[in-house]
Nucleic acid binder design. Structure first.
Length: 546
RNA sequence: GGCUGGGUAGCUCAGUGGCAGAGCAAGCGGCUCAUAAUCGCUAGGUCGUUGGUUCAAAUCCAACCCCAGCUACCA
């Protein structure tokens, strides 16, 4: 990829019915790392995340609380934004499905599908639980009393039949199958791709794109006779109903690219390079969404990455189960950098992973406090003590330079393959190599020899410490997408200017900066070492977790 | 039920025919620059079960047990 490339990465938009858990923001942290990686590489980058705010359930919950729906979602969005700020998330736009340009985008996408003959009025039928709403086939259970909703077994379900608009997904079966075959990396990881391909091959049914009864939603722009549902005064005829979820939520990705208000921007930013989503919505993103885009004359996104879930003792974390981690608590204990690092290091990006406070604290202590934090600290201390604070020059390689070349290649390829945990694992192997170099060379022994007048030892001491400083610089810059606050502080302690803006923009091309000895010619002075990642006492961390 | 993955050390996982591995956690030792850190060593596994193929099986085959995912309209 050339430095002039543009890169557009998105997350799914979160349902704004509550405050966010770490399991919800997990993919946002991952996407943020990828966005920062591209910004630092010099790609013109757009990172989109946001909230999904329409639905009968949200309107109902606001009503229960006795507040206006808009106020209810505004309050929840503020909680999302606060949690994302705490985690140093750096979206280029935080999109809300209630944003006016998004409303226009969704309506225009519906019009395009209609113009293309892909939506038609049909009959939506399904079970309806008066206590909860529409239930899917797999949501209901057969009991001796009849079909019931498992949450409300005493309530009799109603078989609802309402007239709704449908999207002709069935018309896209062949094209979807071909797309999956011709672009094996469209949906990843592979096992998810195979699941989706299997689903396509099993035959595709049309899906409904409107709801007749719902009021809290984007007005459906077309009347059943094909005329516009917009009235002369600009308001929308409620008889047309509202746009149902997928023609609302998924559209955010094109809205974020500039559709429909900014055709030039849209031409530049679409198709998206990467949608990062959870496995629960894989089908909608890899099957419905490409078909919807094709219907509108647009391209499918280039890649969809499907991640797994965070588990607590084998069970999916969720707000309803109450077994989730509050990102604010995690940041309070581990710091923003620690929370980001630990979450993405502990959780494999391609599958479900069990997490706990204990595993988070162990990982923080092992990797950040002991391995990397202490490497920085001991390196800076020794250079201060033995070289009087003068930053040693990068000398003839003591073996770390070759190791770095391998590390960087592995790190880079894993980040670009969305294997973020594996990427950190590779980088930290290099941290281990640097710590082993300290033991092998014993700078304190060299320093004694220097005091005794050994000139050869002086050179060697300088070279060893020079390599260690360089190793610390490289790891700090390479890890910056994961630890955006700590990286500049580490560089500062090493006596270097951090050349990037807070968002990761504005500096030299990252791969140039990550060349061994890129700043060998510059002199500088080391600062007083100060632990970047203070070690946590396990008991104290457990106590603060409540 | 069908299809697809998986079950390997206390924990998380790598290993797809050739002497059972890594990281973390545990124990012991070294070192002293450092955040009780770091480096080294040790211990710990009938590789889900049973049978088969093979000179040789964690790996291939069969059966079985267990777990997870997908099997269409939730945001």
């Amino acid at each position: 990829m050339s430095p002039a490339d543009r890169y557009y990465v998105t997350t799914s938009i979160a349902y704004a019915n509550n405050k966010p858990g770490l399991h919800t923001l997990y993919e946002v942290i991952g996407a943020d790392v990828i966005a920062r990686w591209h910004r630092m590489n010099g790609d013109e980058t757009k990172f989109l995340t946001g909230t999904d705010e329409h639905s009968v359930n949200i309107a109902q919950k606001a009503e229960e609380l006795g507040i206006a729906t808009r106020d209810f979602v505004d309050g929840n969005v503020a909680l999302f934004r606060a949690a994302e700020d705490a985690l140093l998330i750096s979206p280029d736009r935080f999109i809300r499905t209630t944003d006016p340009d998004h409303v226009r985008a969704a309506q225009e996408m519906v019009r395009r599908a209609y113009a293309n003959g892909d939506i038609y009025v049909g009959k939506y039928e399904g079970w309806y639980c008066p206590a909860e709403g529409f239930k899917t086939r797999s949501d209901v259970v057969e009991t001796p009393q009849g079909t019931r909703c498992p949450n409300h077994p005493k309530v009799e379900l109603e078989w609802i039949s309402e007239s709704n608009w449908f999207f002709r997904l069935s018309a896209y079966q062949e094209r979807l199958e071909r797309h999956f075959e011709e672009h094996p990396d469209f949906a990843q990881p592979d096992y998810r791709r195979n699941e989706m391909l299997g689903f396509i091959r099993g035959g595709l049914e049309d899906f409904s794109v409107s709801r007749a009864g719902a009021k809290w939603g984007i007005p459906f722009p077309i009347m059943p006779d094909g005329s516009s549902s917009q009235r002369p005064d600009g308001t929308w005829d409620p008889a047309a109903g509202t746009i149902y979820v997928w023609y609302d939520a998924l559209i955010n990705y094109v809205t974020g690219a500039g559709f429909p208000d900014d055709p030039a921007g849209f031409a530049k930013w679409w198709p998206a390079d990467l949608h990062i989503i959870g496995k629960d919505i894989a089908r909608f993103h890899t099957i419905y969404w490409p078909a919807m885009l094709w219907s509108a004359g647009m391209e499918a996104p280039r890649h969809v990455w499907i991640h797994g879930f965070l588990l607590a003792q084998g069970e999916r974390m969720s707000k309803s189960l109450g077994n989730f981690l509050d990102p604010i608590d995690v940041v309070a204990t581990l710091g923003a950098d620690g929370a980001r690092y630990v979450t993405l290091r502990e959780v494999a990006f391609d599958r479900d992973t069990d997490v706990s406070w204990d595993s988070f604290v162990r990982r923080y202590n092992a990797d950040l406090a002991n391995d990397f934090g202490n490497l920085l600290n001991r390196t800076i201390s020794m250079a201060n003590r033995y070289l009087d604070g003068e930053r040693p020059s990068v000398g003839p390689a003591a073996g770390l330079a070759a190791a770095w070349t391998e590390t960087l290649a592995a790190y880079r390829s894993k980040i670009e393959a969305c294997l973020l945990s594996d990427a950190l694992c590779s980088l930290w192997e290099f941290v281990g190599a640097a710590n082993r170099l300290v033991e092998a060379e014993q700078p304190w022994t060299l320093a004694k020899a220097v005091k005794a007048g050994d000139a050869e030892a002086a050179l060697r001491l300088n070279n060893v410490l020079g390599d260690l400083v360089e190793a610390c610089r490289l790891v700090s810059v390479a890890a910056a997408p994961f630890i955006p606050n700590a990286a500049p502080r580490a560089l500062g302690q090493l006596g270097y200017q951090y050349p990037y803006e807070a968002s990761g923009r504005g500096g030299p091309a990252l791969l140039e900066e990550l060349r061994w000895g890129a700043h060998a010619a510059e002199s500088g002075r080391l600062a007083t070492p100060e632990p970047l990642f203070p070690r946590l006492e396990t008991e104290a961390a457990a106590a603060s977790a409540g």
